[in-house]
Write a protein that binds this DNA or RNA. Structure first.
Length: 670
DNA sequence: GATACTTCAATGCG
DNA sequence: CCGCATTGAAGTAT
């Protein structure tokens, strides 16, 4: 039950800066990509690292020691006056050619080997394929998860399993999308990925148990039933009741461990701590009439749990009214208070169970219901300063909220959704889009834009990024493919965000909506400049994104050893930008300027380029690393600025003290 | 151990 | 945007 706010490392020791463990230059020479060794794919997570921290400000305040802000001013903060005025800037169009001066060129893509190379990028990132064809008989796949950890997990492992599942699922979805409908085999990428992970031992908490599951935290969100199977939260792939047979006084009897409430039956919306749950079975099937439910299996288990006062885990299935997003949120332990039999809609008997949430648990489902109400405006969000700090520039409002002190907003800046390019970014060469008629179909290798991505369509059908890459090429506004899905980062923010005052790190960014792994969040807006032509002091400003920083590499993509197709070669995931780019959001920016640093981030940045008016632009786009529960602060790794030329393999230290609170905190950043 | 059965999934089609 | 049919895999029961 310990959330990250409750357990801080001793910040007085921050001065004693540790070496940055796995830091590597972002442009390593040679083929040094580490072989996959089954470490957690995205930097280790501390066992208690966390997730859902709804209404965190008040809770955090209770537990957070004074972190001596006078001595270590929070990152990112500008002088607080004058009062905030969020002047909006009209969307920038091609009518301002002098401002929209593009980047230097890319070499025309080398389509022959399916790999677009950037000019000025001297390092060829392709890693020679060493793996044999990934067939079960000649594969020697090891999950890297030992027997003990597979039985009883931990936070790090749970997050790792979820990431590996979803990376594989996205890849299967990508492969399916690319096939013609006739030969498409992978109709259910979730099942395919899930059963692959099961078979290869990419799972944890296989020991079934009632109560707490190690590494799974209240408020965790899931988007597929299989995700809950793999981490041992709820093992049936479809059924709603999970149970376990234990020794009773006289004979063996089942007790319930967890239930999924999909909202299929009517739920009492009144009190989020109470759940009336309907037993299983009795439903009409294609060759079966509906019938009375029987006191067996899950129904019997719930009855026995009631007798034994044994609490069950409850997972709430949620459907957001606005769009079709279905998801699950783990809402902790409930006690079964009573049971009865009731006539269902079909006139047959159904079992009913009244469950009441155990006290003392952090809110999860209750927070979600509260957020749904905020969206209607009644009651309004507590601590609201501005309902939309973008003044309508974003299609979805961005709230400005302060629940911790009297600060009424960050310093003045101009909100914009488009990057301003300075004169120094002249394209040396024109660039071309594709000539697809209506939309660019995945798998269509005649599409120039798809070929620039190495033959892969970078996003799944619902706009989720499949893999990290040195560069993503999107279709451009001037491509004729008007309804094309390869324009994800050009369509603006799609999640309901809020800028909030954090307890110890100034303003931060978080989302009212749950965010799926791989979802686009926003781009980094500001004034883009060639760093080599800018004074050093400018580059050191707060509110600056610097692509030349040294970033901690991490593994996010699917593992070729898990995908059962042989064509995959392991590509570098690390970003590759053709010139030292800095983006200053000091005067002009968007929500990205409020995202804080963390050494265990939940967001990564990815270079994305697309052409406009025959000129190529590079953007820094942010995507979710893992599923992010509502109200969890969004953070990315700021990296460490590179001292000019004097690196010599010595560990690099950031200039700012880090307050991310992660057990894997490097101590500094920036 | 094989195999049948159960199951509040997820998708795509009309 | 929906209702419906289709396909589905783990775990349990036989």
């Amino acid at each position: 039950m310990e959330r990250n706010g409750g357990h801080y490392t001793d910040k007085t020791r921050v001065l004693d800066i540790k070496p940055l463990r796995t830091l590597r230059p972002v442009f390593p020479s040679g083929n040094q990509a580490p072989p996959f060794v089954c470490a957690p794919p995205f930097g280790p997570f501390p066992p208690g690292f966390s997730s859902f921290y709804p209404f965190s400000s008040s809770q955090a305040n209770q537990h957070t020691p004074d972190l001596n802000q006078a001595q270590y001013p929070p990152q990112h903060q500008q002088p607080q006056n004058p009062p905030p005025v969020y002047q909006q800037q009209p969307p920038q169009h091609a009518s301002e050619p002098s401002l929209v001066t593009p980047l230097r060129s890319f070499r025309s893509p080398d389509v022959s080997n399916g790999n677009a190379e950037l000019e000025g990028s001297t390092v060829k990132r392709r890693i020679p394929k060493k793996r044999p064809i990934a067939r079960p008989e000649n594969m020697n796949f090891e999950s890297g998860i030992n027997v003990a950890d597979r039985e009883n997990g931990n936070r790090e492992l749970v997050l790792s399993v979820l990431m590996r599942f979803d990376a594989l699922r996205r890849r299967f979805a990508q492969l399916e999308d690319a096939k013609e409908a006739v030969s498409g085999i992978i109709k259910r990428p979730d099942l395919k990925s899930g059963s692959t992970c099961m078979g290869r031992g990419v799972r944890t908490n296989t020991k079934k148990r009632p109560g707490i599951v190690p590494g799974v935290e209240i408020g965790d969100v899931f988007f597929f039933r299989f995700e809950m199977c793999l981490v041992g939260l709820h093992s049936p792939s479809m059924a709603g009741i999970d149970y376990l047979v234990v020794k009773g006084e006289t004979e063996e009897e089942p007790i319930a461990t967890s239930i999924v409430s999909s909202g299929y039956y009517d739920n009492d919306e009144g009190n989020p701590d109470v759940l009336i749950y309907t037993g299983q079975g009795g439903n009409a099937d294609k060759d079966k009439q509906s019938s009375d439910q029987k006191l067996e299996r899950g129904n019997l288990a719930l009855e026995k749990s009631l007798r034994r006062d044994s609490a069950v885990r409850v997972i709430r299935g949620l459907k957001e009214a606005s769009h079709n997003a279905k998801m699950y949120i783990y809402d902790g332990l409930y006690e079964i208070k009573e049971s009865w039999v009731e006539k269902g809609k079909s006139g047959h008997n159904t079992f009913k169970y009244k469950l009441v949430r155990a006290p003392g648990q952090p809110p999860a489902f209750a927070s979600w219901t509260a957020i749904q109400k905020w969206k209607t405006g009644v009651p309004s969000r507590q601590g609201l300063i501005l309902p939309d700090m973008t003044s309508g520039v974003e299609s979805i409002p961005v709230s400005l909220v302060n629940e911790v002190d009297t600060d009424n907003g960050p310093a003045y800046f101009t909100y914009s959704t488009t990057v301003k390019y300075s004169e120094s970014f002249k394209l040396m060469q024109p660039s071309f889009g594709c000539d697809c008629a209506n939309l660019c179909k995945p798998g269509n290798l005649d599409c120039h834009c798809i070929r620039k991505n190495g033959g892969d369509f970078p996003y799944t059908g619902n706009g989720i990024l499949v893999s990290r890459k040195p560069m993503i090429y999107e279709c451009s506004p001037s491509c004729p493919c008007s309804t094309c899905k390869n324009k994800v980062t050009q369509m603006g923010v799609k999640v309901r965000l809020e800028v909030f005052k954090s307890a110890n790190r100034g303003w931060g960014l978080r989302s009212w909506d749950a965010i799926r792994a791989g979802s686009f969040i926003c781009i980094y807006v500001g004034e883009a400049k060639d760093k080599s032509k800018v004074q050093q002091t400018m580059a050191n400003d707060d509110y600056t994104f610097d692509t030349t920083n040294v970033y901690n590499p991490f593994k996010w993509n699917y593992e070729p050893g898990l995908a059962d197709e042989d064509a995959c070669e392991e590509m570098s995931e690390e970003s590759e930008i053709p010139l030292p780019l800095i983006i200053s959001a000091k005067n002009v920016g968007n929500v990205a300027r409020f995202m804080n640093h963390s050494c265990s981030p939940n967001v990564f940045w990815q270079p994305v380029s697309y052409e406009n008016n025959s000129q190529l632009f590079v953007h820094v786009a942010f995507f979710a690393i893992s599923h992010i529960p509502p109200m969890t602060e969004l953070t990315y790794d700021y990296g460490v600025s590179r001292p000019s030329g004097t690196q010599n393999g010595n560990p690099l230290y950031g200039k700012k003290k880090c307050f991310c609170g992660s057990a894997y905190c490097r101590g500094s950043f920036g």
